[in-house]
């Protein structure tokens, strides 16, 4: 699992690769916190290269969304593969976190 941060006109895009499960979810949380820092105006998580996410990984996404929400920073996800999409649908998290088909749509919705 690896998180790479890129900036697109004030929107921070975090690209997540690999698998996230309970064995590396703490590392995932740490890497996301490092990537987001304190100054992002909006955050997009690009999950195009995320092969698998377990409930432990979902917890981290929820935690990050809550933390950013408290700072009024919008967060959305994009480019989910089929299996990851279905994890978000089954858990119901697609109801509380915006999911976009691709990065262009996510960046457009983030206002840039």
């Amino acid at each position: 699992m690896n998180v790479q941060a890129e900036h697109h006109d004030g929107v921070l895009v975090a690209k997540v690769e690999g698998r996230v499960d309970s064995s590396n979810s703490q590392d995932f949380e740490r890497q996301l916190h490092e990537a987001f820092g304190d100054d992002a105006g909006a955050v997009v998580m690009d999950l195009g290269q995320l092969a698998y996410i377990s409930s432990a990984g979902l917890r981290v996404v929820l935690l990050v969304a809550k933390t950013l929400g408290q700072r009024n920073v919008g967060i959305s996800l994009c480019s989910l593969s089929g299996p990851v999409q279905s994890v978000f649908e089954i858990s119901g998290f697609n109801r509380i976190i915006q999911i976009h088909e691709n990065r262009t749509a996510a960046l457009a919705a983030a206002g840039k």
Partner: peptide, 11 residues
């Protein structure tokens, strides 16, 4: 079928 729910404790 799914019933439009969400994991408990999330919101």
């Amino acid at each position: 079928e799914l019933t439009g729910g969400i994991a408990l404790g999330a919101v």
